[in-house]
Amino acid sequence: MSKSLWIILVVVGLVAPFIVYPVFMMKLLCFALFACAFNLLLGYTGLLSFGHAAFFGGASYVTGYLVKTGGLTPELGILGGTLFAALLGYLVGSLAIRRQGIYFAMITLALAQIVYFIALKAPFTGGEDGLQGIPRGKLFGMIDLGQTYSIGGSPVALNLYYFIFALFCLGFWVIYRTINSPFGQVLKAIRENEPRAVSLGYKVERFKLMAFVISAALAGMAGSMKSLVFQLASLTDVSWHTSGEVVLMTLLGGVGTVLGPLVGAFTVITLQSELSSVGSWITVIIGVTFVVCVLLFRRGFVGELGRLLKKSL
């Protein structure tokens, strides 16, 4: 993809907090990373996980606990959450990749429900309340992430924003590198024709498991970031709604495209925030949008655009 497009996107990311409501921007970055991590599995390996909220939410609890109760600095909290998600991904993945298609999805869903149950019942997760008032803390013990600057009369947590933006770029780069690596080539081969990949001598289980762990770890990182932004880890993060939402974002934007999940996350988050005044009708509106989009653009926004331009985006 062209270099200029990347530069434009980075510049947009850098100036965004001066133009858009920064918490909205940060939420967007968290969910965009979550969707990109999910897309690594669905779009590039052909595995539909229906339990990704377990990694997103699980990591957000772990980060919350480490920072709030353990008193760790935010970067260590995020590292802890990410590692936890990777480990959980290894366990879930080891079981799930033994089956294919809908059975794979069902195993991931079932295991994610177990994580939900633990989050509801365990003594350190705060039950129905979740973990509230998670401190943002000082990055490396020096930079205060809670500090706000006055922009246009309203306080903006610029330090936190740029920390989140940097993490997003790191996560996105890992995904981009993975897709465009020798490893990524084999993943695409597995997606295209698994028996043929086996007959070429690739141990597809190992490749699937590695992809699953990478995807889970990055979904976890997104959840960890979220818990710092909202200072909250809640049951919503681990619920199956969240697992479904990330499927929706990825399909809307374009599965198997690099930029699709970004666009999908942007669309869903914007709709949610713009329509928050209409109350519970919001699910109906998003549902209708989804149906219309899937009927009109089967490859998602970016997928259809890529087809028009005859380029892979």
Partner: peptide, 19 residues
């Protein structure tokens, strides 16, 4: 065809390398 040749390079698990 490259996928068949790639295995011998021994880099197929290297997700951190450029293709």
């Amino acid at each position: 065809v490259r996928l068949a040749l790639q295995r011998k390079l021994g880099v197929s698990y290297h997700f951190w390398k450029s293709d």
